[in-house]
Design a protein around this nucleic acid. Sequence first.
DNA 1: AATATACATTTTGTTTACAATATTTAATAG
DNA 2: CTATTAAATATTGTAAACAAAATGTATATT
Lengths: 217, 217
Amino acid sequence: MKSESLALKAYTEIRRKILSAQISPNTRLKEDFWAKKLSVSRMAIRETLTRLLGEQLVTLGPKGGYFVNSLTSQDITQIRELREVLELGALRLAYEKITKDQIGRLEKICKDFTAMVEQGYYAGACEADLKFHEALMECSGNDKLVHTYINSHIPLFHQRLTKTNNSENDYDLTDKEHRAIVKALKDKNIEQAEKVMKMHFARGATMIDADFDQQLQ
Amino acid sequence: MKSESLALKAYTEIRRKILSAQISPNTRLKEDFWAKKLSVSRMAIRETLTRLLGEQLVTLGPKGGYFVNSLTSQDITQIRELREVLELGALRLAYEKITKDQIGRLEKICKDFTAMVEQGYYAGACEADLKFHEALMECSGNDKLVHTYINSHIPLFHQRLTKTNNSENDYDLTDKEHRAIVKALKDKNIEQAEKVMKMHFARGATMIDADFDQQLQ
DNA sequence: AATATACATTTTGTTTACAATATTTAATAG
DNA sequence: CTATTAAATATTGTAAACAAAATGTATATT
């Protein structure tokens, strides 16, 4: 077989476009159009779309046709809640299983974050922020949990924050909270870890909602 | 268009077979074989498989070919942990949002459970057990959470319990724990609710693992 | 002018055919 | 008899063709 099938190429491409909002929600995805656009056969597009259907990234219209799933303000809230549920759960599992190496990794990411903020690399800092949360999920030692997290399209969502103009202050707070979480894990203080994590979310929530409201205008 | 496309028919059928373990894990799913078996075209099967790929129910082999995802003993543990994370999260959300009607619904399911156990309808009781947990998830008021729960293939897993020969005692305990959870929610006592839920899981865990070990022999 | 109907176009659903790659089988050399 | 290689077979990847349904358009009728 070829190094990468055409269907996979189309899948990767369309998925990326949806997740980065280059194709807007509720858009109908016409097979022929995308087949020509990506110069693959219509069947390759069809495979792409059914796979995305399985991922709940698109929906089947009542009379056929594939549509990009929407992200209403309610969806945003629900995704945020889901994120909190998953991350708090992972935190509790990590509390029991976390290793020295993993703590080291988290601390390294915190250091990177600080350094980048200091030097004005804000996109890089956001990347480190994202990486911190993913690393934390991995500390749960539960692949299914990590996978659920990745697949709930939270990371994309997180990415949107990159584009907003955050104040220096926000970055500093984020940094401090990340470090507090790691410290609490190190000290085996689960109550403290949960408390900081919840605060971290609460602050993020307002920022996310503000961002979303802004985009609606 | 037809009332139900052939691809959808094949999808429903194969998905059901995988989830009910009628097709065992790691089996290679050959397109032509299933096309003939379900008397649909190979492309319909292909769509089915790519959709299941999106759902993480099957995997792509390194040299092509679709394989049913496995359920190792480690997978079982991870799914159980995921379930606990999701249900505890839902419980916490439900604590804030639950309505009188929803509590009524939970109580009704508890009553059904009791009645069925008393009359010796054990399969029915298991069904009620399943329904109780799904209803609880719905009380979170978060569709994404419910969807994640459904789609983590926990229900199937739950279903396996049906087949094990549980003692009367187990049913009684399950019943009591369900009722205790509802009562705690009613009393707005989140600590108590979480505590009972954790106990409920802890007991279920040993049963599930025992069941799995038995099946391995 | 509004509505309904017939026709044309677009889009999806399905099947078939062919090409490319894996896998198995058989034959041959050591 | 074993290992290696070549041919045969099986399986998947891709494309094209056809059928069915939905959508859009123009015409006729009131």
